[in-house]
Design a protein around this nucleic acid. Structure first.
Lengths: 191, 191
DNA sequence: TTGCAAAACCCTAACCGTTAGCGTTACCGT
DNA sequence: ACGGTAACGCTAACGGTTAGGGTTTTGCAA
């Protein structure tokens, strides 16, 4: 048939997932994260509670369904960068791009929602830290080391910690620059 | 009466709190964190479930009852340091002291317990980050700034992130030095 | 000493996120 | 057409946490 081999099954599954996430996000934005329970999300999306958890690992994951890709971009910024660029430079640019993408997509209501719930903020931080090990490996390789040292882990965490700080700053782009300056300095003495 | 004005009331309250925490930690170490429920802890300590939560904000807080003081030590290391010492130097020494205190107190079973549960690890990270704002204020003051900039917040988080990394390292003291070298370099370019 | 407000505690019952167990429907490859 | 399996549903429960409302203990003053 057509080039897209996505069967009805996968399409329906994706549609269900989207419907759940959209319904949930809508309810959360409208009435607040804590005021809306999972049972209510399921009912509004016309699915069973178990189906919600078949698609999303937790209630918080419902909110962050959309920005999945941002995490890998950071790791790839190091591994797939141009030959003439240093790792800190590539990271600075990628973080700028990510922040820019968030701003142009008019994500301010979304940011307010996240800011309103400690659960969501915590989940977000964990989201970024979850990729710290992968980034630490890339950092170690970048510095020509076979094994991952505590310094590599620390640098990786420094970088992944930039986003939450920038998000809560008045001028996110300036915050990225300011913190990346620190990280670049730390990067040089690592060795 | 005597100089200690601690009435029977406060003493009894403190005793109840200790009894709960000791009972809980014993059960956790003996049978595993997840295998012991709050209802069981309450029963073993001969108190009501509501009493447990009157003393501790969460199940995880039962485990970390003892190392409350470590957090403030980091902040005080900056604010109460000698005149001739720089902030990064004071912090490096304090982190070393904290790690040493943990080792001499033979906290290895405790560390194993924390390492065995994602909930506990997460709670521990949060514990340290919770004081990041206080440390950020101290850092900003140390650098002669009236307001807290993103760089101050970043530096504070870098420092408070050392402990979890050191704890999981093979040589915690060396890890502290390694990471503090990075932070000291970052500190200098800040401003 | 007695009386009284507040603190500390208890019990019950529930809410909420999450999961196990098990059945049902819809899709896919053969 | 058909059998396997993926997606979904229902029910019931578990474990952390809290609200509501009562009982005992403590501190303090009349």
């Amino acid at each position: 048939m057509s080039a897209e081999q996505v069967g009805r099954r996968e399409r329906k599954k994706a549609a269900t997932r989207q419907a759940i996430a959209n319904t949930a996000l809508g309810l959360f934005l409208e009435r607040g994260y804590d005021a809306v329970g999972i049972r209510e999300v399921a009912q509004a999306a016309d699915v069973a509670v178990t189906t919600v958890f078949a698609h999303f690992a937790s209630k918080e994951a419902l909110v962050f369904d959309r920005d999945q890709g941002f995490q890998d971009r950071v790791v790839r910024a190091v591994t797939d960068r141009d030959a003439g660029t240093t790792a800190p430079e590539a990271l600075r640019e990628e973080l700028h791009a990510i922040v820019r993408d968030f701003i142009v997509s008019n994500a301010t209501p979304f940011w307010r929602l996240v800011a309103s719930s400690p659960d969501l903020q915590e989940y977000e931080s964990k989201m970024w830290l979850r990729h710290a090990d992968a980034l630490a490996v890339a950092v170690a390789a970048d510095r020509g080391r076979p094994a991952v040292s505590p310094a590599d882990q620390a640098l990786a965490r420094f970088v992944l910690g930039v986003f939450p700080l920038a998000r809560d700053s008045a001028d996110p782009q300036a915050a990225v620059d300011e913190i990346m300056n620190l990280i670049a300095a730390a990067w040089e003495v690592a060795g």
